[in-house]
Design a protein around this nucleic acid. Sequence first.
RNA 1: GCACAGGUGGCCGAGCGGUUAAUGGCAGCAGACUGUAAAUCUGCCGCUCUCCGGAGCUACGGAGGUUCGAAUCCUCCCCUGUGCA
Length: 373
Amino acid sequence: MPVGTLASVKGVSQDLLEELGAEIILSNTYHLFLRPGVEQVRALGGVHRFMSWDRPILTDSGGFQVFSLSAMRKLTEDGVEFRSHLDGSKKFLGPEQAMEAQIGLGADIIMAFDECTEYPAERSRVKESMELTLRWARRSKDYFEAHKGEVPWGGVPSCRLPVASEGRGQGSVGSEELAVLHSAWTGEGARPHTGGAATQALFGIVQGGMEMDLRRESAERTMEIGFPGYAMGGFSVGEPRELSRDVIAATLEHLPADKPRYLMGVGTPEEIVYYAKLGVDMMDCVLPTRAARHGLLFTSEGRINIKGARYAGDEGPLDPKCGCKVCGRYSRAYLRHLYVSNEVLATVLNTVHNLSFYLDTMRSVRHAIRLGA
RNA sequence: GCACAGGUGGCCGAGCGGUUAAUGGCAGCAGACUGUAAAUCUGCCGCUCUCCGGAGCUACGGAGGUUCGAAUCCUCCCCUGUGCA
Protein backbone atom coordinates (compact mmCIF):
# COMPACT_ATOMS: atom_id res chain seq x y z
CA MET A 1 0.00 0.00 0.00
CA PRO A 2 1.55 3.27 -1.06
CA VAL A 3 1.39 5.84 1.70
CA GLY A 4 -0.41 9.10 1.17
CA THR A 5 -0.32 10.64 4.61
CA LEU A 6 -2.01 13.89 3.71
CA ALA A 7 -4.52 12.40 1.28
CA SER A 8 -1.82 12.52 -1.33
CA VAL A 9 0.83 10.03 -2.28
CA LYS A 10 3.63 12.55 -2.49
CA GLY A 11 4.75 13.19 -6.01
CA VAL A 12 2.11 11.32 -7.96
CA SER A 13 -1.41 12.13 -9.01
CA GLN A 14 -4.34 9.83 -8.51
CA ASP A 15 -4.53 8.95 -12.19
CA LEU A 16 -0.86 7.96 -12.13
CA LEU A 17 -1.55 5.78 -9.11
CA GLU A 18 -4.40 4.11 -10.94
CA GLU A 19 -2.18 3.57 -13.93
CA LEU A 20 0.44 2.03 -11.71
CA GLY A 21 -2.14 -0.36 -10.42
CA ALA A 22 -2.22 0.84 -6.84
CA GLU A 23 -5.27 -0.86 -5.42
CA ILE A 24 -5.34 0.64 -2.00
CA ILE A 25 -3.54 3.53 -0.40
CA LEU A 26 -2.94 4.74 3.10
CA SER A 27 -3.81 8.03 4.63
CA ASN A 28 -3.35 9.39 8.12
CA THR A 29 -5.86 10.43 10.72
CA TYR A 30 -3.60 12.67 12.74
CA HIS A 31 -2.43 14.66 9.76
CA LEU A 32 -5.86 15.11 8.20
CA PHE A 33 -7.27 15.88 11.63
CA LEU A 34 -4.85 18.80 11.88
CA ARG A 35 -5.35 19.92 8.30
CA PRO A 36 -7.78 20.35 6.67
CA GLY A 37 -9.72 18.95 9.64
CA VAL A 38 -12.09 16.02 9.84
CA GLU A 39 -15.22 18.14 9.62
CA GLN A 40 -13.97 19.74 6.47
CA VAL A 41 -13.29 16.38 4.86
CA ARG A 42 -16.64 15.07 6.03
CA ALA A 43 -18.38 18.11 4.58
CA LEU A 44 -16.65 17.38 1.30
CA GLY A 45 -18.03 13.88 1.26
CA GLY A 46 -15.22 11.95 2.88
CA VAL A 47 -11.66 11.33 1.94
CA HIS A 48 -12.42 9.30 -1.20
CA ARG A 49 -14.43 12.04 -2.75
CA PHE A 50 -12.16 14.75 -1.39
CA MET A 51 -9.11 13.31 -3.09
CA SER A 52 -10.97 11.74 -5.98
CA TRP A 53 -9.92 8.19 -5.31
CA ASP A 54 -12.44 5.44 -5.91
CA ARG A 55 -10.34 2.57 -4.73
CA PRO A 56 -9.87 1.48 -1.14
CA ILE A 57 -8.22 3.68 1.43
CA LEU A 58 -6.88 2.70 4.80
CA THR A 59 -6.36 5.33 7.45
CA ASP A 60 -3.87 4.91 10.19
CA SER A 61 -5.28 5.97 13.52
CA GLY A 62 -2.55 8.34 14.63
CA GLY A 63 -0.99 5.69 16.82
CA PHE A 64 2.27 5.98 14.97
CA GLN A 65 2.33 9.70 15.63
CA VAL A 66 2.09 8.94 19.34
CA PHE A 67 5.48 7.38 18.73
CA SER A 68 7.05 9.62 16.13
CA LEU A 69 5.97 12.89 17.73
CA SER A 70 6.77 11.71 21.22
CA ALA A 71 8.76 14.85 21.93
CA MET A 72 5.65 16.99 21.70
CA ARG A 73 2.95 14.94 23.32
CA LYS A 74 1.58 14.02 26.71
CA LEU A 75 0.26 10.53 27.14
CA THR A 76 -2.50 9.59 29.56
CA GLU A 77 -4.91 6.71 29.97
CA ASP A 78 -7.43 8.64 27.97
CA GLY A 79 -5.23 9.31 25.02
CA VAL A 80 -2.59 11.70 23.84
CA GLU A 81 -2.38 15.42 23.99
CA PHE A 82 -0.35 16.64 21.06
CA ARG A 83 1.23 19.93 20.37
CA SER A 84 0.36 20.50 16.75
CA HIS A 85 3.50 20.64 14.67
CA LEU A 86 1.74 23.15 12.45
CA ASP A 87 0.89 25.90 14.89
CA GLY A 88 1.80 24.61 18.34
CA SER A 89 -1.82 24.42 19.50
CA LYS A 90 -2.95 21.62 21.78
CA LYS A 91 -4.83 18.74 20.20
CA PHE A 92 -6.20 15.62 21.80
CA LEU A 93 -6.51 12.19 20.29
CA GLY A 94 -7.73 9.14 22.15
CA PRO A 95 -9.46 5.97 20.98
CA GLU A 96 -12.86 7.67 20.75
CA GLN A 97 -11.51 10.73 18.98
CA ALA A 98 -9.49 8.61 16.59
CA MET A 99 -12.57 6.53 15.76
CA GLU A 100 -14.76 9.56 15.37
CA ALA A 101 -12.16 11.08 13.08
CA GLN A 102 -11.72 7.95 11.00
CA ILE A 103 -15.45 7.44 10.65
CA GLY A 104 -15.65 11.04 9.58
CA LEU A 105 -12.90 10.62 7.03
CA GLY A 106 -14.65 7.54 5.76
CA ALA A 107 -11.80 5.26 4.75
CA ASP A 108 -12.57 1.63 3.98
CA ILE A 109 -10.26 0.22 6.56
CA ILE A 110 -9.61 2.11 9.74
CA MET A 111 -7.21 1.28 12.53
CA ALA A 112 -7.64 1.00 16.27
CA PHE A 113 -5.87 3.71 18.22
CA ASP A 114 -2.69 2.21 19.60
CA GLU A 115 0.60 3.12 21.10
CA CYS A 116 3.49 2.17 18.85
CA THR A 117 6.03 1.04 21.41
CA GLU A 118 9.50 2.43 20.98
CA TYR A 119 12.63 0.34 20.68
CA PRO A 120 14.54 -0.41 22.73
CA ALA A 121 12.21 -0.62 25.71
CA GLU A 122 12.30 -2.39 29.04
CA ARG A 123 10.06 -5.40 29.22
CA SER A 124 7.94 -3.73 31.90
CA ARG A 125 7.50 -0.73 29.69
CA VAL A 126 6.58 -2.92 26.70
CA LYS A 127 4.03 -4.75 28.81
CA GLU A 128 2.52 -1.53 30.08
CA SER A 129 2.35 -0.14 26.57
CA MET A 130 0.77 -3.32 25.28
CA GLU A 131 -1.87 -3.24 28.00
CA LEU A 132 -2.67 0.35 27.13
CA THR A 133 -3.02 -0.58 23.47
CA LEU A 134 -5.37 -3.41 24.45
CA ARG A 135 -7.56 -1.10 26.54
CA TRP A 136 -7.57 1.38 23.68
CA ALA A 137 -8.47 -1.42 21.26
CA ARG A 138 -11.51 -2.27 23.35
CA ARG A 139 -12.55 1.37 23.49
CA SER A 140 -11.91 1.81 19.77
CA LYS A 141 -14.17 -1.10 18.98
CA ASP A 142 -16.89 0.00 21.38
CA TYR A 143 -16.96 3.46 19.92
CA PHE A 144 -16.85 2.12 16.40
CA GLU A 145 -19.72 -0.30 16.97
CA ALA A 146 -21.85 2.51 18.35
CA HIS A 147 -21.06 5.01 15.62
CA LYS A 148 -20.04 3.10 12.52
CA GLY A 149 -23.02 4.24 10.53
CA GLU A 150 -22.02 7.87 10.78
CA VAL A 151 -19.92 7.86 7.66
CA PRO A 152 -19.70 10.96 5.52
CA TRP A 153 -21.46 9.52 2.53
CA GLY A 154 -24.78 9.67 4.29
CA GLY A 155 -24.82 6.66 6.51
CA VAL A 156 -24.97 4.19 3.70
CA PRO A 157 -22.21 1.70 4.30
CA SER A 158 -20.28 1.15 1.15
CA CYS A 159 -17.10 -0.70 1.57
CA ARG A 160 -16.08 -4.25 1.50
CA LEU A 161 -13.00 -5.35 3.15
CA PRO A 162 -10.27 -7.39 1.61
CA VAL A 163 -10.47 -11.07 2.40
CA ALA A 164 -7.44 -13.18 2.79
CA SER A 165 -7.21 -16.17 0.57
CA GLU A 166 -7.21 -19.58 2.15
CA GLY A 167 -4.33 -21.15 3.86
CA ARG A 168 -1.56 -20.07 6.08
CA GLY A 169 1.41 -18.67 4.31
CA GLN A 170 -0.56 -17.87 1.21
CA GLY A 171 -2.78 -15.23 2.51
CA SER A 172 -2.12 -12.23 0.35
CA VAL A 173 -4.98 -9.98 -0.40
CA GLY A 174 -4.70 -10.14 -4.13
CA SER A 175 -5.60 -7.96 -7.01
CA GLU A 176 -8.56 -10.19 -7.73
CA GLU A 177 -10.09 -9.60 -4.35
CA LEU A 178 -9.49 -5.92 -4.61
CA ALA A 179 -10.79 -5.88 -8.14
CA VAL A 180 -14.07 -7.11 -6.74
CA LEU A 181 -14.10 -4.10 -4.52
CA HIS A 182 -13.45 -1.79 -7.39
CA SER A 183 -16.12 -3.20 -9.61
CA ALA A 184 -18.60 -3.03 -6.78
CA TRP A 185 -17.99 0.65 -6.75
CA THR A 186 -17.13 1.58 -10.24
CA GLY A 187 -19.21 -0.92 -12.16
CA GLU A 188 -22.31 1.20 -11.94
CA GLY A 189 -20.44 4.42 -11.78
CA ALA A 190 -20.99 4.46 -8.08
CA ARG A 191 -18.44 5.89 -5.72
CA PRO A 192 -17.88 4.66 -2.22
CA HIS A 193 -19.57 7.66 -0.76
CA THR A 194 -22.68 7.21 -2.83
CA GLY A 195 -23.60 3.76 -1.72
CA GLY A 196 -22.37 0.21 -1.53
CA ALA A 197 -22.67 -3.00 0.30
CA ALA A 198 -20.53 -3.01 3.39
CA THR A 199 -19.26 -0.84 6.18
CA GLN A 200 -15.89 0.37 7.22
CA ALA A 201 -13.68 -2.31 8.67
CA LEU A 202 -11.89 -1.64 11.94
CA PHE A 203 -8.64 -3.52 12.35
CA GLY A 204 -6.98 -4.25 15.67
CA ILE A 205 -3.27 -3.76 16.24
CA VAL A 206 -0.97 -6.19 17.99
CA GLN A 207 1.88 -4.71 19.99
CA GLY A 208 4.28 -6.29 22.47
CA GLY A 209 7.64 -4.97 21.36
CA MET A 210 10.24 -7.64 20.76
CA GLU A 211 8.97 -9.88 23.55
CA MET A 212 7.73 -13.08 21.98
CA ASP A 213 5.34 -13.99 24.77
CA LEU A 214 3.90 -10.50 24.93
CA ARG A 215 3.34 -10.55 21.18
CA ARG A 216 1.44 -13.77 21.61
CA GLU A 217 -0.56 -12.40 24.50
CA SER A 218 -1.30 -9.23 22.58
CA ALA A 219 -2.43 -11.24 19.57
CA GLU A 220 -4.70 -13.49 21.61
CA ARG A 221 -6.28 -10.71 23.60
CA THR A 222 -6.76 -8.54 20.52
CA MET A 223 -8.51 -11.48 18.89
CA GLU A 224 -10.71 -11.84 21.94
CA ILE A 225 -11.91 -8.32 21.35
CA GLY A 226 -12.48 -9.41 17.79
CA PHE A 227 -11.69 -7.59 14.55
CA PRO A 228 -12.12 -8.39 10.88
CA GLY A 229 -8.39 -7.94 10.37
CA TYR A 230 -5.26 -7.73 12.49
CA ALA A 231 -2.22 -5.58 12.21
CA MET A 232 1.22 -6.01 13.67
CA GLY A 233 2.54 -2.67 14.81
CA GLY A 234 5.69 -1.55 16.48
CA PHE A 235 8.14 -2.77 13.86
CA SER A 236 10.58 -0.77 11.80
CA VAL A 237 11.28 1.42 14.78
CA GLY A 238 15.01 0.88 14.83
CA GLU A 239 15.28 -2.74 15.93
CA PRO A 240 17.72 -5.11 14.25
CA ARG A 241 16.21 -6.67 11.15
CA GLU A 242 16.72 -10.25 12.24
CA LEU A 243 14.95 -9.55 15.47
CA SER A 244 11.88 -8.13 13.78
CA ARG A 245 11.94 -11.07 11.38
CA ASP A 246 11.75 -13.54 14.22
CA VAL A 247 9.17 -11.65 16.20
CA ILE A 248 6.97 -11.08 13.17
CA ALA A 249 7.14 -14.72 12.18
CA ALA A 250 6.18 -15.76 15.69
CA THR A 251 3.39 -13.22 15.95
CA LEU A 252 1.94 -14.27 12.64
CA GLU A 253 1.53 -17.79 14.01
CA HIS A 254 -0.91 -16.49 16.56
CA LEU A 255 -3.07 -14.57 14.14
CA PRO A 256 -5.84 -16.17 12.07
CA ALA A 257 -4.83 -17.01 8.51
CA ASP A 258 -8.38 -16.50 7.27
CA LYS A 259 -8.35 -12.84 8.19
CA PRO A 260 -6.17 -10.13 6.72
CA ARG A 261 -2.88 -9.88 8.54
CA TYR A 262 -1.33 -6.51 8.12
CA LEU A 263 2.29 -5.70 8.87
CA MET A 264 2.56 -1.99 9.46
CA GLY A 265 5.39 0.12 8.15
CA VAL A 266 7.40 -2.53 6.32
CA GLY A 267 9.58 -2.57 4.27
CA THR A 268 12.22 -2.91 1.61
CA PRO A 269 11.42 -4.85 -1.58
CA GLU A 270 13.24 -7.87 -0.14
CA GLU A 271 11.31 -7.61 3.11
CA ILE A 272 7.87 -7.37 1.55
CA VAL A 273 8.53 -10.50 -0.47
CA TYR A 274 9.85 -12.26 2.57
CA TYR A 275 6.87 -11.34 4.73
CA ALA A 276 4.34 -12.06 2.02
CA LYS A 277 5.81 -15.55 1.86
CA LEU A 278 5.38 -15.85 5.58
CA GLY A 279 1.70 -15.09 5.16
CA VAL A 280 1.43 -11.37 5.63
CA ASP A 281 -1.45 -10.04 3.53
CA MET A 282 -0.98 -6.31 3.70
CA MET A 283 1.94 -3.96 4.14
CA ASP A 284 2.48 -0.26 3.83
CA CYS A 285 5.67 1.68 3.74
CA VAL A 286 6.81 5.21 3.04
CA LEU A 287 10.12 3.89 1.83
CA PRO A 288 9.39 3.77 -1.92
CA THR A 289 7.97 7.26 -2.01
CA ARG A 290 10.35 8.90 0.42
CA ALA A 291 13.40 7.22 -1.03
CA ALA A 292 12.27 8.34 -4.48
CA ARG A 293 12.21 11.94 -3.32
CA HIS A 294 15.70 11.45 -1.98
CA GLY A 295 17.04 9.91 -5.16
CA LEU A 296 17.16 6.32 -3.94
CA LEU A 297 15.71 4.03 -6.54
CA PHE A 298 14.92 0.35 -6.24
CA THR A 299 15.75 -1.78 -9.22
CA SER A 300 16.14 -5.41 -10.18
CA GLU A 301 19.87 -4.77 -9.89
CA GLY A 302 19.63 -3.37 -6.41
CA ARG A 303 19.51 0.12 -5.02
CA ILE A 304 20.63 3.03 -7.11
CA ASN A 305 21.48 6.42 -5.73
CA ILE A 306 20.67 8.37 -8.84
CA LYS A 307 22.53 11.49 -7.79
CA GLY A 308 25.83 9.66 -8.10
CA ALA A 309 28.38 11.17 -10.47
CA ARG A 310 28.78 7.74 -12.03
CA TYR A 311 25.38 8.13 -13.71
CA ALA A 312 26.12 11.50 -15.29
CA GLY A 313 26.83 9.94 -18.68
CA ASP A 314 24.79 6.77 -18.32
CA GLU A 315 22.46 6.49 -21.27
CA GLY A 316 20.91 3.25 -20.13
CA PRO A 317 17.48 2.88 -18.57
CA LEU A 318 17.19 3.05 -14.81
CA ASP A 319 16.23 -0.61 -14.63
CA PRO A 320 16.49 -2.58 -17.87
CA LYS A 321 14.09 -5.19 -16.50
CA CYS A 322 11.44 -2.73 -15.40
CA GLY A 323 8.44 -2.10 -17.59
CA CYS A 324 7.44 1.21 -16.09
CA LYS A 325 7.09 4.26 -18.25
CA VAL A 326 10.06 5.94 -16.63
CA CYS A 327 12.40 3.08 -17.44
CA GLY A 328 10.89 2.87 -20.88
CA ARG A 329 11.60 6.44 -21.74
CA TYR A 330 14.33 8.14 -19.74
CA SER A 331 18.01 7.52 -19.21
CA ARG A 332 19.82 7.37 -15.91
CA ALA A 333 21.77 10.42 -17.04
CA TYR A 334 18.56 12.39 -17.46
CA LEU A 335 17.11 11.21 -14.16
CA ARG A 336 20.33 12.18 -12.44
CA HIS A 337 20.23 15.57 -14.09
CA LEU A 338 16.65 16.15 -12.96
CA TYR A 339 17.50 15.15 -9.41
CA VAL A 340 20.66 17.18 -9.17
CA SER A 341 18.90 20.18 -10.69
CA ASN A 342 16.15 19.92 -8.15
CA GLU A 343 13.49 19.61 -10.80
CA VAL A 344 10.02 18.69 -9.58
CA LEU A 345 9.88 16.13 -12.35
CA ALA A 346 12.61 14.18 -10.58
CA THR A 347 10.26 13.51 -7.68
CA VAL A 348 7.46 12.49 -10.00
CA LEU A 349 9.50 10.14 -12.18
CA ASN A 350 11.40 8.63 -9.27
CA THR A 351 8.20 8.02 -7.36
CA VAL A 352 6.50 6.50 -10.37
CA HIS A 353 9.38 4.11 -10.79
CA ASN A 354 9.71 3.10 -7.15
CA LEU A 355 5.99 2.53 -6.75
CA SER A 356 5.95 0.66 -9.97
CA PHE A 357 8.78 -1.52 -8.76
CA TYR A 358 7.03 -2.22 -5.47
CA LEU A 359 3.67 -2.89 -7.05
CA ASP A 360 5.24 -5.13 -9.68
CA THR A 361 7.02 -6.98 -6.93
CA MET A 362 3.74 -7.62 -5.17
CA ARG A 363 2.05 -8.65 -8.40
CA SER A 364 4.74 -11.26 -8.89
CA VAL A 365 4.26 -12.44 -5.35
CA ARG A 366 0.53 -12.85 -5.92
CA HIS A 367 1.16 -14.62 -9.15
CA ALA A 368 3.52 -17.02 -7.42
CA ILE A 369 0.96 -17.61 -4.68
CA ARG A 370 -1.68 -18.42 -7.26
CA LEU A 371 0.64 -20.88 -8.90
CA GLY A 372 1.27 -22.35 -5.50
CA ALA A 373 4.95 -21.61 -5.78
C1' G B 1 44.43 62.05 -12.25
C1' C B 2 42.00 62.72 -7.29
C1' A B 3 38.66 60.72 -3.30
C1' C B 4 36.41 56.88 -1.02
C1' A B 5 35.32 51.41 -0.73
C1' G B 6 37.35 46.79 -1.70
C1' G B 7 40.68 42.42 -3.12
C1' U B 8 39.88 35.68 1.79
C1' G B 9 40.06 28.53 -0.15
C1' G B 10 35.66 26.43 -7.17
C1' C B 11 31.84 30.71 -6.16
C1' C B 12 29.45 34.09 -2.55
C1' G B 13 30.87 35.76 2.06
C1' A B 14 32.57 36.13 7.75
C1' G B 15 36.91 37.06 10.41
C1' C B 16 40.23 42.55 11.41
C1' G B 17 47.13 40.72 16.25
C1' G B 18 47.44 34.62 18.89
C1' U B 19 42.69 28.15 20.55
C1' U B 20 42.83 29.96 12.05
C1' A B 21 43.59 25.20 7.26
C1' A B 22 40.53 29.87 8.45
C1' U B 23 32.46 30.75 10.76
C1' G B 24 28.41 30.44 7.21
C1' G B 25 26.03 29.51 2.59
C1' C B 26 26.31 27.57 -2.45
C1' A B 27 28.46 24.18 -5.72
C1' G B 28 30.96 19.25 -5.58
C1' C B 29 31.54 14.01 -3.52
C1' A B 30 29.66 9.95 -0.63
C1' G B 31 26.03 7.81 2.58
C1' A B 32 21.32 7.25 5.22
C1' C B 33 16.06 6.85 4.73
C1' U B 34 10.90 1.15 6.66
C1' G B 35 2.23 2.47 10.09
C1' U B 36 5.86 10.44 6.55
C1' A B 37 6.81 17.22 11.29
C1' A B 38 11.45 14.24 5.71
C1' A B 39 12.01 17.78 -2.08
C1' U B 40 15.02 15.66 4.53
C1' C B 41 19.28 14.32 7.36
C1' U B 42 24.61 12.90 8.04
C1' G B 43 29.76 12.85 6.69
C1' C B 44 33.77 14.66 3.47
C1' C B 45 35.14 18.99 0.94
C1' G B 46 43.63 23.28 0.02
C1' C B 47 47.69 19.48 -1.18
C1' U B 48 50.51 14.89 0.34
C1' C B 49 51.02 10.89 3.55
C1' U B 50 48.32 8.16 7.77
C1' C B 51 49.04 2.47 12.30
C1' C B 52 42.58 7.33 11.11
C1' G B 53 45.07 9.27 17.00
C1' G B 54 47.51 12.26 13.59
C1' A B 55 51.99 14.09 10.60
C1' G B 56 54.09 17.34 6.94
C1' C B 57 53.60 21.11 3.24
C1' U B 58 51.23 25.48 0.90
C1' A B 59 47.59 29.33 1.81
C1' C B 60 43.64 35.24 2.88
C1' G B 61 46.09 40.27 -4.56
C1' G B 62 52.01 40.98 -4.84
C1' A B 63 56.64 42.47 -2.45
C1' G B 64 58.80 44.15 1.81
C1' G B 65 58.40 45.51 7.09
C1' U B 66 56.69 45.74 12.53
C1' U B 67 55.92 41.74 16.20
C1' C B 68 57.61 36.14 20.20
C1' G B 69 53.31 35.68 16.72
C1' A B 70 49.94 38.76 10.90
C1' A B 71 44.39 37.15 6.72
C1' U B 72 44.26 40.85 10.59
C1' C B 73 49.06 46.60 11.86
C1' C B 74 52.68 49.72 8.49
C1' U B 75 55.01 50.94 3.47
C1' C B 76 55.16 50.51 -1.70
C1' C B 77 53.11 48.20 -5.97
C1' C B 78 49.10 45.71 -8.87
C1' C B 79 43.94 45.08 -9.69
C1' U B 80 38.33 45.97 -9.06
C1' G B 81 33.98 49.08 -7.95
C1' U B 82 31.73 53.87 -7.08
C1' G B 83 31.96 59.18 -7.16
C1' C B 84 34.44 63.69 -8.87
C1' A B 85 37.34 65.80 -12.62
